[in-house]
Design a protein around this nucleic acid. Sequence first.
DNA 1: CCGGATCCGGGTTGATACTG
DNA 2: CAGTATCAACCCGGATCCGG
Lengths: 216, 216
Amino acid sequence: MRSYDQYCAAARALDVVGDRWTLLIVRELLLRQPCRYTDLRQGLPGIATNLLADRLREMEANGIVTREVAAPPVATTLVRLTPRGEALRRVIETLGEWGEPLLRETPPGAAFRTYWLALPLERYLTDHEADRPPVTIEVRTGDDPVLVQTADGGAVRVRPGAAPDADATIQGSPRLVFELLMGEVELAAARKEGLEYHGDPAVLRRVQRVAVDDVA
Amino acid sequence: MRSYDQYCAAARALDVVGDRWTLLIVRELLLRQPCRYTDLRQGLPGIATNLLADRLREMEANGIVTREVAAPPVATTLVRLTPRGEALRRVIETLGEWGEPLLRETPPGAAFRTYWLALPLERYLTDHEADRPPVTIEVRTGDDPVLVQTADGGAVRVRPGAAPDADATIQGSPRLVFELLMGEVELAAARKEGLEYHGDPAVLRRVQRVAVDDVA
DNA sequence: CCGGATCCGGGTTGATACTG
DNA sequence: CAGTATCAACCCGGATCCGG
């Protein structure tokens, strides 16, 4: 990208991360670091392979990312964020916070990866009964499932994986699953629209976000 | 911009504000709202006039900006941020915070407007002697001067204008002025490099940021 | 299969000229 | 003052190909 050539911190930041795809590459790395070129590609539906290669080169030159050749058995190069790249987490979070209302008007066919839920869920969800034994919810939206788990201090953690013995299981479209967990839809209503929930509803309520009603 | 078409809040945000120049237009409006097309143009050195017109149209369609025809005497249209557009302030701030280290390596010829100082200065500076009578510093870097003033609650405010009776005056290159106020350079050192300071040095020290030394 | 490089058509940007 | 018109240069997306 051409520099804006302005003595302004925001403009300088955009010189470095304002290119198309760059911040989404950072998002992927925040979620799946360290990862291979191919992993990045499948986590960035729509990116052209040459663009990904270009961006990684630029990001490496800008000190956001490093590449390392993995040990012999793996024999692949892994991409990882530098501390400076990690610091972009706050930028992604702030952008996500601003963009959240736009999710409602996102077309149903939009691409999705279940592990993308980690950023918003870990940010907004809390364990409302932190003194009780931890629970695990398996979430499936079509691709690889993730586990939503209560952790120490009332935190909620999301990690890839399945658990046959999960306390509850949620399956449905990305939108239904997300809006359910975010407390924007009732379980009954979500079920009517095709969402499947197995397990004690109390498990869901334990982590579900308390609805923020902007209606007075 | 083409949509990323992903069900992800950050990607949706970038669909709307990820275009080149869009966030810098928001920056201008945050600082000088409401303002005319021409004001925007001169606050965005390097932008092509057709791009500015395009962006304003898109931003209006996306609910970030409104245009209003000013009352008869003025007879011009004014651009203003909607509340939704105002909410981008946090995005700009976070970007600026991340980009600040890059200012050190910004080429000396970079474009600058003195009022751009308002965002970082109001964020980082505090009045260290808030119980004493307020002070005003006039800052000049080549274009229209601004006033840095202590305000209630230990806050520091920046507004356009000059003040012949200011308690102090700073004049110099954008970099020298900024690094001096941010506590990255000593007054003596700055003077050696061409900065001019008139007034009691205690006035400067009263608002100057306490240097954050990352050297152990 | 992995990690790209190359090529090409089309869209976007930037510079300038021009206009109501 | 507030744009529109035009055009060249650049960037992006998609497809294909290629060496390990």
